Amino acid sequence: MHLLSGIHHVAVICSDYARSRYFYHQILGLPILDEHYRAERDSYKLDLALPDGAQLELFSFPDAPPRPSWPEAQGLRHLAFRVQNLERVLAHLQQHQVACQKIRVDEYTGRRFCFFADPDGLPLELYEDSGASAK
């Protein structure tokens, strides 16, 4: 019996809420589920939908410390998005001036992947999945 049934959400604290909201909603195309401003915390919270039912939460907090290094800091190493056509997504990102690393091949699965970063430098990965189970 599995105790966990999947990922519900991943939370990201951003330094510039408007810039990150644009990046994840407009450039990556994630639909907005809900958005709130919490005055008592001077903080925004944005819930974005992923196609598999999981969610990405964006938070803004005043004076949040920056990530210490990339991508080998303790904690979340990177967030990987499953894609069907890696070249198509990379071309879209490059049209929006998002720098992407070279395509690499996973030595264990033979699948192709590529890293890029969100506006705060959070490491993001595109992992090509032609329909079989993903990494």
Results as ranks from 00 to 15, higher is better:
residue 103 I to K: 01
residue 116 F to C: 02
residue 92 H to E: 07
residue 83 V to R: 00
residue 65 P to Y: 03
residue 100 C to H: 03
residue 90 L to K: 10
residue 89 V to F: 07
residue 80 A to D: 11
residue 76 L to A: 12
residue 66 P to L: 05
residue 95 Q to E: 15
residue 66 P to N: 06
residue 74 Q to D: 14
residue 106 D to W: 07
residue 95 Q to P: 04
residue 61 F to C: 12
residue 73 A to N: 12
residue 113 F to E: 03
residue 116 F to S: 04
residue 71 P to I: 09
residue 118 D to K: 00
residue 96 H to A: 07
residue 100 C to T: 08
residue 61 F to Y: 14
residue 118 D to P: 00
residue 98 V to D: 11
residue 113 F to A: 03
residue 97 Q to D: 13
residue 62 P to H: 04
residue 63 D to S: 12
residue 89 V to Y: 07
residue 58 L to V: 01
residue 99 A to E: 14
residue 64 A to I: 11
residue 70 W to D: 12
residue 108 Y to G: 14
residue 82 R to H: 13
residue 89 V to L: 08
residue 85 N to H: 10
residue 66 P to T: 05
residue 100 C to S: 05
residue 68 P to N: 07
residue 109 T to M: 10
residue 87 E to L: 12
residue 86 L to G: 02
residue 94 Q to N: 15
residue 94 Q to W: 12
residue 93 L to W: 00
residue 105 V to A: 12
residue 97 Q to R: 08
residue 100 C to K: 01
residue 80 A to W: 09
residue 62 P to E: 09
residue 66 P to W: 04
residue 94 Q to G: 08
residue 88 R to N: 15
residue 82 R to S: 10
residue 82 R to L: 12
residue 101 Q to I: 05
residue 98 V to N: 00
residue 110 G to S: 03
residue 108 Y to F: 15
residue 61 F to Q: 07
residue 73 A to S: 15
residue 78 H to K: 06
residue 59 F to K: 03
residue 111 R to K: 11
residue 109 T to K: 02
residue 73 A to I: 09
residue 81 F to G: 00
residue 96 H to L: 06
residue 104 R to I: 11
residue 73 A to C: 15
residue 99 A to T: 12
residue 108 Y to M: 11
residue 114 C to F: 00
residue 110 G to I: 03
residue 76 L to H: 10
residue 114 C to A: 10
residue 69 S to H: 08
residue 65 P to M: 03
residue 116 F to V: 02
residue 73 A to D: 15
residue 83 V to K: 02
residue 63 D to Y: 11
residue 113 F to N: 02
residue 73 A to E: 10
residue 93 L to N: 02
residue 92 H to F: 10
residue 73 A to G: 07
residue 87 E to R: 13
residue 74 Q to P: 15
residue 81 F to W: 12
residue 86 L to P: 00
residue 102 K to P: 15
residue 99 A to C: 11
residue 64 A to T: 10
residue 90 L to Q: 14
residue 58 L to R: 00
residue 116 F to D: 02
residue 88 R to E: 12
residue 74 Q to H: 15
residue 111 R to I: 14
residue 58 L to G: 00
residue 63 D to H: 09
residue 103 I to H: 03
residue 80 A to S: 13
residue 87 E to W: 10
residue 96 H to E: 13
residue 106 D to R: 07
residue 63 D to G: 04
residue 101 Q to A: 10
residue 81 F to M: 04
residue 92 H to D: 09
